[in-house]
């Protein structure tokens, strides 16, 4: 049933705590919502509201605490708590980042970058297998936004993602804004990245706002703040990705300076329009756009 629901979804929006009551009251015309389970684990009131919303809207669960890239292993206690929520929500998708956030039990509350090499590949694949076994569902692994890379990386990010898919059968979440951010920050071509992305594994896409900061050395770095409307470059890259891979359920992420829900829904409608136009015009014109 879920695969039918998912294939017909338009763009959804990230559901944050301050919008829960408004969603229940106003029943906005949203296609689906994505939530961070970590916001509900110690908040029975929010969980109660979420379960009510889940009766009317498809929900996708996007964990920011299952640290599949941590060399020290994944936190099974946390995973069990996330699973308990997932079991109550029966979400359309479950996802998380190709990143790490914990080391020796301390949490850094950030999605930290990984070197891409044989050892990290084995560790990430092992952890995703554990997550998928525990949840009994496919996990969607998201490409991260990064500000730096590692000297000992031996693989590109896209090759790494393809290898993880190969080893685990997991699905991918292509965050197009993250591609734009990381490509700018690390100096590679975002369109080539999309060309090399294992598109058949994509189950979901993300779009989020960013901010540009001047660097002391005269350059500019793009910060993945999720605090603004989607950047024009990200829209262009999204059109290109949709033309190349076909439409996928796409999420508007907005986590800081959160506006009214209607602003998020307007961005979602724009994503639907951009996707429809990209599907009509094809890859070449999408890139020219």
């Amino acid at each position: 049933m879920h695969s039918q629901v998912v294939s017909s979804l338009g763009a959804g929006v990230g559901l944050r705590l301050q919008h829960l009551a408004a969603v229940i009251k106003d029943r906005p015309d949203a296609s689906w919502f994505e939530i961070h389970p970590e916001n509900y684990l110690a908040n029975p009131y929010a969980a109660e509201l979420l379960l009510e919303i889940a009766r009317s809207y498809p929900i996708s669960v996007h964990s920011v605490g299952v640290s599949v890239g941590s060399a020290g292993g994944i936190d099974r206690t946390h995973l069990a708590r996330v699973k308990a929520l997932i079991d109550r929500l029966d979400p359309i998708m479950v996802s998380g980042h190709l990143a790490w956030s914990t080391h020796e039990g301390d949490y850094l509350n950030d999605l930290l970058p990984l070197p891409y090499h044989r050892e990290s590949l084995a560790i990430v694949a092992d952890h995703i297998n554990q997550v998928q076994d525990a949840l009994g569902r496919p996990y969607h692994l998201e490409n991260p936004s990064t500000y730096l890379g590692f000297a000992d990386s031996t693989m590109t990010e896209t090759a790494f993602l393809a290898a993880v898919v190969d080893k685990t059968g997991c699905r991918l979440l292509c965050d197009v804004s993250n591609v734009h951010v990381s490509a700018h920050n690390l100096g590679y071509d975002p369109y080539r990245y999309i060309d090399e992305f294992p598109g058949e594994a994509i189950g979901e896409m993300h779009l989020g706002g960013l901010e540009i900061e001047a660097e002391a050395n005269g350059g500019e770095v793009i910060i993945d703040t999720h605090s603004r409307p989607i950047d024009g470059h990200a829209w262009d890259l999204y059109a290109y990705a949709v033309a190349r891979f076909g439409a996928r359920p796409t999420l508007i992420e907005w986590d800081n300076a959160i506006p009214e829900l209607t602003t998020l829904l307007d961005e979602a409608a724009k994503a639907d329009a951009v996707a429809a136009s990209a599907l009509k015009s094809g890859v070449r014109s999408a890139r020219a756009g």
């Binding site: 070197p115 500000y147 730096l148 890379g149 590692f150 000297a151 000992d152 920050n185 690390l186 100096g187 660097e215 002391a216 050395n217 350059g219 770095v221």
Partner: peptide, 11 residues
């Protein structure tokens, strides 16, 4: 350990 187009420590 780190690489970036300019200064990895600033990143």
């Amino acid at each position: 350990l780190l690489v970036a187009p300019r200064d990895p420590i600033e990143r």
